[in-house]
Simulated scan of single mutants.
Amino acid sequence: MKAILCQQYGPPEQLVLADVPSPEATTGQVVIQVEACGVNFPDTLMIEGRYQFKPPFPFSPGGEVSGVVTQVGEGVSHLAVGQRVFSLTGHGGFAEEVVTSAATTLPMPDGMDYVTAASTMYTYGTSYHALKDRANLQPGETLLVLGAAGGVGLAAVQLGTLMGSRVIAAASTDEKLAICRQLGAAETINYTTENLRDRIKELTAGNGVDVVYDPVGDRYAEPAIRSLAWRGRYLVIGFAAGDIPSIPLNLALLKGASIVGVFWGAFAQREPKISMQNFQQILARILSGQLKQHIYKTYSLAEAPTALRDLMERRVVGKAVVTVNS
């Protein structure tokens, strides 16, 4: 089979398309013929050696796939050969086949296409867990989403709107913010041309925001925390802008605020029952049309390095997806 391989840490341009042996399923595993694979920020960290999990060389990036089960290992009873599935693989998805845990593999609902299925778990899973479980977002509250045009950002915009909050979307271009408005944002901030704190103060009549959803970090974190309302919650999602910020903790004290970490992957492993309940609610909203992933572009397997580069250069609005056997 063909796979995109990372043979040493470095930029996407060092990845190679190569022939490798097909995988075999062992106990508790399945092999999936990959139809589509989502492109996510952790993929870019993994190939550069900056992610907390470091697979042995050579490895394929690609942490969420959709496809068809071709092998079932011992002890797997809820999946069968020929079944359409989507799966959280962690890595290995930029390939024609991937072996993965059956525990993180779910049957695809009827009516769902492969591209949608391969672009759902990371974005909506992370954002719903963040807003529901970690922030306890309430109807009528104000939610600020930084990096709002990215995959998890747009998911947070949509989910926050469905949960009854007033969503303020912040991104780097007016074109990106137009997409955010289409997907439910009530207000927008271009933090390239506008002062983030001043604009938040203006939009909230000086009261601040109840929840900050921050997958960006870097220089945007502190002004966002300074813009929290009393008892506000700042959600630490990730650091797509590069640097991990140092936060003056007196800000949390003065505002009675909470700085809350969000690690959806660990949550899904440690609290699988609640995670599955969340995901069933997400799927119901997708199938009903309440949630719709914004697909920036689909790429062939050979174009997977380009997809990663586009993500790193912040050209991707919403989700990029690699299609393999489709």
Results as ranks from 00 to 15, higher is better:
Glu35Thr: 14
Glu74Cys: 04
Val72Trp: 12
Ile47Pro: 06
Val39Trp: 00
Val69Asn: 03
Ala25Thr: 15
Leu79His: 02
Glu74Ile: 07
Thr26Tyr: 13
Gly28Val: 01
Glu48Ser: 09
Val76Pro: 13
Ala80Arg: 15
Ser22Cys: 11
Ser60Glu: 04
Asn40Val: 07
Asn40Lys: 08
Gly63Phe: 10
Gln29Lys: 09
Cys37Asp: 01
Ile47Gln: 04
Gly28Pro: 02
Ala25Lys: 09
Val81Ala: 13
Gly49Phe: 02
Cys37Met: 01
Val81Asn: 14
Val34Asp: 08
Phe59Cys: 01
Ser77Arg: 12
Ser66Met: 01
Ala36Gln: 05
Met46Arg: 08
Val72Met: 14
Leu45Phe: 10
Val31Trp: 04
Gln29His: 12
Thr27Ser: 12
Pro58Thr: 06
Gln71Cys: 12
Gln33Lys: 09
Cys37Pro: 00
Glu64Pro: 01
Thr44Ser: 13
Pro55Tyr: 08
Ser22His: 08
Ile32Val: 10
Val68Phe: 08
Val76Tyr: 11
Glu48Val: 04
Asp43Arg: 02
Val39Glu: 01
Glu24Leu: 09
Val30Leu: 07
Leu45Cys: 13
Ile32Met: 00
Phe57Trp: 11
Pro23Thr: 15
Gln71Tyr: 10
Pro23Val: 08
Phe53Arg: 13
Glu48Asn: 15
Glu64Leu: 05
Phe53His: 14
Leu79Lys: 02
Tyr51Pro: 06
Glu74Thr: 08
Arg50Asn: 07
Pro55Lys: 04
Gln52Lys: 07
Thr27Cys: 14
Thr26Val: 09
Thr44Asp: 11
Pro42Ser: 06
Val31Tyr: 04
Val76Thr: 12
Val39Lys: 00
